[in-house]
Nucleic acid binder design. Structure first.
Length: 276
DNA sequence: CGGTTGCCCTGGGGGC
DNA sequence: TGCCCCCAGGGCAACC
């Protein structure tokens, strides 16, 4: 499901249920993720109180008291729902559930198990092996064309692939990379290190705008993403390239069709007439 | 070293 | 109906 806007939607959805509350119970039904969930995960988390829930790149960070933090990634197929029952009726692929004291269950379902659930000292979070190489947050004030240009300098790879590399910019996934490049009129095959400062200015602006618009729309619902209350995101209706192979380009007067190519094993959708 | 490929895993859809 | 292949919102480790 999730790129940055979908993860942000989940964070905003679960924060009100979690912040300031104690974790009364944790159920782990399957530990085998890309890194196994530690065997003492439940023991470490139960009884702690949630101080903050935040997003960093596509990671959810739950800061607990006593100097501990939960690091959580939804992978490709992760979904989070809030269940208002004393004991949830677990479904297939419901792998982890948190019970908030006197309240709801937060249930993590992830069919493909490309996600991650870990716990570590809050002080060491920035040095966590999966966190230490995360690049600039595209929605922060510190993200601009100078920063992106520095990260892309000398890079021979295609700009599309460079945008998917979280070290260059955090949280941009396959959909929003395609959409941001379309909005910027940049061909996804362009060499990353050879894009002009002026074009990078536009690209940074369009990355931010597409992400912000998607967050505003509650994310994109393709197969299974939903907000935690079950409401579907609707940004997929705004896609101009993603999943539109063979359909007409939306640009007025452009009669070209959207193309699909494969870059680094991932599909890229673009208009070869509008994007140079 | 940067750049590319393979792989983790399940499920859905299309062709035959 | 079944089987097989391809595809899917991610990202790491292992290779050249």
């Amino acid at each position: 499901m999730p790129e940055l806007p979908e993860v942000e939607t989940v964070v905003r959805g679960i924060s009100p249920s979690l912040e300031g509350q104690m974790i009364a119970d944790v159920v782990v039904r399957n530990r085998s993720f890309r890194k196994p969930i530690p065997t003492d995960f439940e023991k470490q988390v139960v009884g702690k109180t949630v101080e903050r829930v935040e997003r960093r790149a596509k990671y959810i960070i739950i800061t607990l008291d006593k100097g501990l933090s939960v690091l959580w990634h939804l992978g490709m197929s992760g979904r989070v729902t809030i269940v208002e029952e004393a004991k949830p009726d677990f479904a297939k692929h419901d792998h982890v559930a948190f019970k908030v004291k006197g309240g709801n269950w937060i249930v993590f379902n992830d069919a493909r198990r490309f996600g991650l659930m870990d716990v570590c000292e809050t002080d060491e979070l920035a040095q966590h092996s999966f966190m230490k190489n995360v690049g600039p947050e595209p929605l922060s004030n510190s993200f601009n064309s100078a920063v992106l240009g520095e990260n892309l300098a000398g890079k021979k790879s295609a700009i599309k692939q460079a945008l998917l590399d979280g070290r260059n910019v955090a949280g941009v996934g396959n959909i929003y990379a395609c959409e941001a490049l379309f909005r910027s009129n940049i061909n996804p095959k362009r060499e990353a290190g050879k894009i002009s400062k002026a074009k990078l200015d536009i690209l940074c602006r369009e990355i931010r705008s597409v992400l912000l618009e998607a967050i505003e729309a509650g994310g994109s619902t393709l197969k299974d993403h939903a907000q935690v209350d079950g409401e579907l995101g609707y940004f997929q209706h705004q896609f101009k390239t993603y999943g539109r192979e063979g359909e007409p380009c939306v640009t007025t007067g452009c009669n070209s069709k959207i193309k699909r190519i494969v870059q680094g094993g991932r599909s890229t959708f673009y208009c070869s007439k509008c994007q140079k």
